[in-house]
Structures are given as structure tokens and as C-alpha cells.
Design a protein around this nucleic acid. Sequence first.
DNA 1: TCTCTCACGTG
DNA 2: GCACGTGAGAG
Length: 543
Amino acid sequence: MLQEKSPAVSDEGFTAAKPSQCQNLAFDPIPQDAATAGSISQEDAPDQNIQNIKVCLHEKDLWKRFHEVGTEMIITKAGRRMFPSFKIKVSGMNPKTKYILLIDIVQADEHRYKFCDNKWMVAGKAEPAMPGRLYVHPDSPATGMHWMRQLVSFQKLKLTNNHLDPFGHIILNSMHKYQPRLHIVKADENNGFSSKNTAFCTHIFHETAFISVTSYQNHKITQLKIENNPFAKGFRGSDESDMRLSRLQSKDYPVISKNIVRQTLVSAHSQFLGKPVSSPQCGSQQCDISTHVPLGALDTHDLPFNSFSAPRDSNLLYHCFKRTDGRHLDLTCKRPYLETSSIIDERYCHPAASYEQAAQNYPNSNDSAGSGEACMYTAAEGDISGSPGAEDHPTLSSLNCNMWASVSPYTSYNVQTMETMAYSTFSTHFSTASVMPRLATPMSGSRSQADTDGHLTIYSPPPQSEICQRTTPSSSPNQSSRNRVAPHLLYERKPSLSYLGNDTNHFPVYTQSTSSSREWSSYPHPRVRTSADNWIDGYKEDK
DNA sequence: TCTCTCACGTG
DNA sequence: GCACGTGAGAG
């Protein structure tokens, strides 16, 4: 279902393939017209190719406010929803074509972090990536018309730190930085995305990057969550009779006026930024496209700093929490994250890494699928399709949306091992190879576009056959309903230490080759610097 | 740093 | 009334 009606979301989004932006990129290994070259069916007019799909992040303003502070997401054993939740407005789809929308969350870098001295600092090397899981939107597959009709919400996506999570939640490591990615995949004739030449594109919104935590480290994040998350309303102060206020007062905790706190924060930020604090452009629940800055000027110094810029509710009180670790004591911002200079480029690399296949011993259960919970698949070693037991477990190549809902979670699929297969971060979930081998296998090349707002789009130029692909009779609404994928459908890939790293100037992309061999090449990738890159004071600098 | 329980709120 | 989501805070 498409949750929550969009309150007049602007149609202006971020284009996946704006030629003008394309030309701005430092690289372009693929001919400009590669994606649209060749014959194009009437169903897939040029402006309806997958690379022309526009995706607009909903509540971008809210995301930015978190981002500027340094977004933290709680992860729990039982699974915790993200807030802000990932919601998008899509346009540019072919109304009749079926698409699958899914999210994966990849490590943003190879670091482990700690919150020290009121700022995030690198604390060492990252743990091996958790078993990669995908969150497929429960409406998938659905027609472009369906997706474009209203907001697409991924709010039920849950994050967990339980390596043996049986619910299909996305598994993350605490104190690591992650980047959610949206993937839009054209469903094939079987409502899956495993067939040859499946077209897809990936959208990355840098403001959705976050550091996973088991408890909030930055009090500013806590306050932002309390102020904006309806479920946390119980923690909003209202008046002197506030229960928590009383509780705190009874414990001799100081109570500080929210306005005072805000003034302090604004003052601190203004001071460090050396520029006036501007009010938010609007209390926008809509797509925020007002912050475009020239490519190459994405340094956070140039981004509007609008968090804490204006009291939203002057009646509220901030509580000054007494914490033994001191995390909540310092209400002023000693040094704004925006000021920091560490740069984490959106250059993808993927060091070959093995990891413990923690999910090997998952209990076999149908509960998830049966109850509408997430469904996931574990990758195992072996051949993709010719394995014993293939009759029990549908082969990956035949895996499609029709089956997702009925396949038991933790079914062990035989896939090509990651150790023998290089793949890009971008294709982790695809390479997630385990479930979308065709997408991970050689394509005619992937391209990426970074718009002026740090929204990165990666897409696969659809091969000729894909461009000419036609929707089949099975794409009728009825069929679509019948083939509905299980809610929270998830896949699990054989994990790897994949991250949006900063160690290389190259962007691994699959190149065309034979259908059986996999290889990737590196291409220079534009440096895209966003405010998130500045959360962390340079490790080296602080050392 | 994490887990668990709690009170409070949403829907 | 109930299931569920939230951050707080003790341990």
C-alpha cells in the first residue's frame, strides 16, 4: 500500500538522467545516449525509460535537519523503525509498466564511530557488514501509475542489531554509518526482476545517511526526534505539570527553557558558521528543492543550516538530562558538524571481505511470510540454479514476485559465492546477487548521476531487449493483486564489507562481458560532498 | 555500549 | 481497549 497521501508534493524532483548534469560529471564511461539508443517500444517512450524516473525525497527538509546534526537511528533487537521514515514521490514512470521498489542500507564507509566530545569521531575499523537484506516495498510489484499516484512510504522498514534476526529486519552494526539506497527495478513478465536485462536505477539521498546507535548519543537528535515523531509525543514537554518534567525535577535535574536552549544552539552555530542562521524556507512536508547548489559546491558550508533556527513550539521545554557519561549534559554545540572538514566521497569501493555467515542457523519458519512480516533469503554457496534441492528452493533465476510471498524465509538458495564475485556497493543488494543475479551480472554498464543536491542516481542503461520489453498480460491489475509480494519482503544477501568508501576515486561498475563471467571496472567518480560528510571530525585531525 | 522495562502516546 | 512505537533510564 502507499501509505499516507501526499500533501501536494511537488512534481519537481531529481532527475535520474539530466543530460546537463551528466555533462558535469567527471566521468562518463558510457556514451551519453547509451541508455536510450536503439529502438524503443511505444510503451517505453524515451521519457519513460527507467533512467528518466524522478524520485523526490519526502520531508527532505526534515531529513536535512537531522542530517545537519548527524542523523542517528536506533537499532534494537526487536527492530526499530526509522525516523524520519523513508518516503518518496516518484514520477516519470511508465504508468503501465510494473516496477519493484526496494531499499537496502549499505555501510557508508569502513569506520566504526564513537560519540566523543559532542561529536562523532572515527573509533576504528568497521565490523564486517551484516547480512545484507533488502526491504521490498509491500506493494511491489505495481504499475508506475500506482507508484506515482501518491507517496511511497517505507516507514515499516525496521532496523535491528540482532545478527540472527528472524523477522527479516535490516541488520546493522551499532555505531556505524549507513546509507539507505532506493532501487527501482522494472518487473519482468513474471513480476520478478530476475530475468535477463532487467532495468533498474538506484537513488541515493545523502541526507538519509545515518549512524546506527542503540541509544541516542547526540541530545540534539533526541530532541529532533521527540519534536517530530508523533510516537515520541509522550516525551514532549508541555507545561509544568509534565510528568517527565516532574520526574526530572524530583531528581534535581535542571530544567532549561527550550527557547533558551535554542538560542544557545543558534548562537553557537552562528558563531561557528560565521553566517546568519536562516529560517527554514518553509515548514515543508514537501519535496525541498530550494537548496540546489552548484555541483562541486556541496560543501556543507554552502548548505543552509536551518536546524534549531526557529522555535517551532515555544511552549515546550527542553530537559537537561543528567547522564553519567555526560552525553546529555552539554547543550551547546561546541563545534558544529558543518564546520568539520572530513570528506567522505561517494565513491564506491568494495573490498573483498569474508564474514561470518551468522544467519546460517536461522530457524526455518514461515511466520514472516505468513504473517506479512518480512521474508528473506539466505545466500549459500554453490551454483545458482543447478543445485540439488532446486525443486525445493526455486532457483534464483526463477525467483519472482509470485513466489516471494510463499517462499519460506531462510530458505537457503544456492548462489555464486561472493568471494568469487566482485561487485560494487551499488550492486550489493542486487548482487545480493543471491537474489538478483541478473542484475548483478554484467550489464552494459551502470551510470550515475549526482544532482546539485547530493542526490545520487545510478541506473543501468537498459539493453536493447529491455528497452523493447513489453508488459505482458500478467500485468493486469488483477494479476498484480494476486501476485502481490509479501509485505516487508526482504532478501538476504551474502554479506560483504561493502561501503561507500573514501579510499578510492573509482566507482566500480559492471562492464559488459559474457553472461557467465563477472567483472567490474573502475571509473572515476565525482566527489560529492554533503553535510553528512562533515559530521565527523577528521580522525587524523583529532589524533 | 547494550538490554530491558517502563510510562506515555498514537492510531 | 488494544497493539504498537517512542525515548528514558537503570543496570
